[in-house]
């Protein structure tokens, strides 16, 4: 490696100021995150402690909103639904993301086009995607049931969105479809970062395809896997909204209702800002706990390995 030394002399003064460097590098990021996230999060925390009306005379009520939402029927179901939805997304986005990235990492005719096709779900506006799925999944006139009934002579059709647990499965599937490109892109860039020399070495050692995958590929994408799964976990838990709202509204009878959807309904349909904020804070706390545990776990395992 050859590096042009001469250009860097002014920076020498910086080196004795490591803190200054730190602020220079991290400062803008921290400042913008405080402005756009921490301040609103703080205000939401406050909102969750004040009375549950949209009126102007709001009163401090302590934890009453929290008590209300936990005391509601079906709070446990809400939690379980959110967790199933999240785990489904985390696993399948990672699984298909890695699998498809591996396929796309090989050379084959038309690869560029196929790669671009896999980006489509990401670029499709969620609202339009939800509408299309509502047509495809329609019970009476949807094309999926039409083809199913053709294939089975009309004996078998699926109620994708109005039966339990079908609704939750369909919605998890739609979310996986939408998030898949992110998984593919991240895994693809992770695969690119595995040095060819590692594969060559495995070849020299006579490793089988499976062994190469296990001992070279998987460790090579490990940090991206941690990042992707953590991100999916946080997102699917905290943003499980658009498709659910548009397709089932959490139904039938709460079957596909997630905490975030309930939070939205409390805020915008029932005008209970306090309860909505309390649910939001609940999501924040649960996510923090899970992310902290997960991160601690993989980090410990990671440091043992090294």
């Amino acid at each position: 490696m050859s590096i042009a030394v001469s250009e860097s002399s002014p920076a020498k003064a910086f080196r004795s100021w490591p803190n200054m460097h730190l602020w220079l590098f991290l400062g803008p990021c921290i400042a913008s995150l405080i402005a756009v996230f921490l301040v609103p999060i703080w205000q939401t925390l406050q909102m969750s402690l004040y009375s549950d009306t949209m009126g102007r005379n709001v009163a401090f009520v302590g934890l009453a909103n929290y008590a209300r939402i936990i005391g509601q029927d079906g709070f446990l179901q809400l939690l379980v639904t959110s967790i199933i939805y999240t785990l489904g997304n985390v696993f399948f986005v990672w699984f298909f993301g890695l699998g498809i990235a591996l396929l796309l990492n090989d050379h084959f005719p038309g690869r560029a086009l196929i790669r671009a096709i896999f980006i489509i779900p990401w670029a499709t506006p969620y609202v339009a995607a939800s509408l299309i799925f509502s047509l495809l999944f329609n019970f009476d006139i949807g094309v999926l049931n039409y083809l199913l009934s053709l294939a089975t002579g009309g004996r078998f059709v699926i109620d994708f969105l109005n039966a339990c647990p079908n609704a939750l499965i369909s919605l998890t599937g739609i979310s996986i479809w939408k998030l898949l490109p992110l998984g593919i892109v991240m895994m693809l860039s992770a695969l690119q970062s595995i040095p060819d020399s590692h594969y060559e070495a495995a070849k020299v050692d006579g490793a089988s395809r499976l062994q190469t995958f296990w001992y070279v590929t998987l460790p090579g994408v490990r940090s991206t896997t941690v990042m992707l799964t953590l991100l999916m976990m946080i997102w699917c838990f905290g943003r499980s909204f658009t498709a659910i709202y548009l397709l089932t509204g959490g139904g039938p009878a709460g079957c596909s209702e997630t905490i975030v959807l309930r939070s939205y309904l409390e805020m915008f349909q029932m005008f209970h800002p306090g309860s909505a904020a309390a649910l939001g804070v609940g999501v924040l706390l649960i996510s923090m706990l899970c992310a902290g545990l997960y991160y601690g776990m993989v980090n410990r395992r990671g440091s043992h390995a090294e």
């Binding site: 990021c29 995150l33 996230f37 921490l38 301040v39 609103p40 999060i41 205000q43 939401t44 909102m47 953590l230 991100l231 946080i234 997102w235 838990f237 905290g238 943003r239 909204f241 905490i259 975030v260 939070s263 939205y264 805020m267 800002p273 909505a276 904020a277 649910l279 939001g280 804070v281 999501v283 924040l284 996510s287 923090m288 992310a291 902290g292 991160y295």
Partner: peptide, 17 residues
Amino acid sequence: LSILGTQMMPPIVLIIP
């Protein structure tokens, strides 16, 4: 972790603030 923590609050409740 806190940088990622900003992603944990559902955006829906952050809209009004």
